[in-house]
């Protein structure tokens, strides 16, 4: 089971917006109105409380991506959009899962968690809640392996990303121009 869209069609947009009421709704309704698909979305204030950063993973071909970016720019509160190349950015996501355990296999699950450097957040009679922070691919692998034990509940945050520091041209940022 492939959890994420294929690499060619998967694009990460890092969208800097004014931190104002209704901005997220504006972004979301633009996607809905124009028929674009959001794969995952994470939003939080930045170092400057005036601005928030929305990290959106979209699953589209090139021309549609160009339209998405241009349409997003038309929103007055969008200040800057960077398309982050997955090869040239660091991505993180947080994952929490409650896994069924019959007692006998608890050791196996904990061992698996140790290998992945996951944390055990809660222990119940017949279940464990684990958390793992890391690259989305690592999370995919962990999820795949846990599935065999029976995942009761699963929650992923959606990825956040920033450009890598040790490269020259790490992101394609276009200044906030709109009409």
């Amino acid at each position: 089971m492939s959890t994420y869209p294929s690499p060619q069609r998967h694009h990460i947009l890092s969208v800097l917006v004014q931190n104002k009421a209704g901005v997220l709704a504006r972004v979301a309704s633009l996607f809905a109105r124009r028929g674009y698909n959001i794969f995952s979305l994470a939003v939080a204030p930045t170092e400057d409380p005036q601005f928030s950063r929305i990290t959106i993973v979209v699953d589209v071909e090139g021309t549609t991506l160009e339209q998405i970016v241009k349409q997003l720019f038309k929103l007055i509160e969008v200040v800057r959009i960077s398309e982050l190349d997955p090869q040239k950015s660091v991505e993180r996501e947080l994952f929490m899962a409650t896994v069924r355990t019959d007692g006998e296999n608890r050791g196996q699950i904990v061992e698996l968690a140790n290998i992945f450097e996951a944390k055990v957040l809660a222990v119940g009679v017949d279940a464990l809640t684990l958390s793992l922070e890391g690259s989305p691919e690592k999370l995919d692998d962990f999820e795949e392996l846990l599935r065999g034990y029976g995942i009761v509940e699963l929650q992923r945050t959606g990825r956040i990303a920033l450009p890598k520091l040790d490269r020259e041209a790490h992101s394609r940022a276009v200044k906030g121009k709109a009409s």
Binding site: I76, E77, V79, G176, A178
Partner: peptide, 8 residues
């Protein structure tokens, strides 16, 4: 007040 609005 409109840091993202600069029509070309």
């Amino acid at each position: 007040s409109l840091p993202g609005y600069h029509p070309t």
